[in-house]
Design a protein around this nucleic acid. Sequence first.
DNA 1: TCTGGGGTCCTAGGACCC
DNA 2: TCTGGGGTCCTAGGACCC
Length: 285
Amino acid sequence: MLLPVDKPAYDAASAVVMDTLRAVPGAVVEVLGWDEAFVGVHGDDPEAVAQRIRADVLAATDLHCSVGIGDTKVRAKIATEFGKPRGTFRLTRETWFEVMGERPTKDLWGVGPRISQRLAALGVTTVRDLATAEDGLLATEFGPQTGPWLGDLGRGESSSTVDDTPWVPRAHGRETTYQQDLEPEQVDDAVRVLAAQVVGDIRAEGRACARVHLKVRFAPFFTVNRSRKLPEPTWEAAVIARTASDLYRALGDDRPVRLLGVRAEMVPPEGGYEPPRTHGRRGMP
DNA sequence: TCTGGGGTCCTAGGACCC
DNA sequence: TCTGGGGTCCTAGGACCC
């Protein structure tokens, strides 16, 4: 049983937390999600700053948090895990291998089950193995960007620059898992519902839809994604719905549908997006 | 593991053009 | 006519995170 999420309440609580962080003297705040942020601070007593942050957040919201201190964003992020619950942990170049060296690569931020499995196939199972693996080997297996980035991850190396430029969303989507599988004839209607929700989201954003993505999970639990760039950007739910329906029909698969998703990739903002300063997922150095 | 929802980014292949 | 290389766009798919 899952409970519905009260998004407005979470948004409000998150805003209070972030404002509390921004009130820390000299702090630069890079928001990572509802409940997580990098706080960039210069100074010689990071533990004191961490203490203050936890006290201020508790006072403002009644919420406890943990703080990771690090000399890179990767180390700070991972340190947070060791700080939980309700504590502080410091992880630096000096202590990295002592703390992380013998741990599985899966414990790294950005290494999931799949990559850790592929690494294991190369004989790389621990963080130390990854740190000392040859770039060439990693690049061959994971590509010229991802390979070397993984090596850096193994060493805890990453940028330490905290960037408070507000995040500009790329897309908004809605998806639903149906309590009862849909028959093909029901898909058009369902897609219209999702398209209408998506248009509400992009209207709030003030940017039109340039590309439509359709996600279909069939009852046997396999999923396909299809997308199509529109001839011209649109605000019309009907255009988005029709495009999604076309993509569905083009699959030529009439098995029952468990999930449908419609996503609108938006026109880039005036001046385009920030030049990528990260590799990998959002917020990842 | 038994699977909800909202996101991002990377890689690779084919089409197309110069 | 044939061949080759490089760049860009589009799309599919994979992987990861909160």
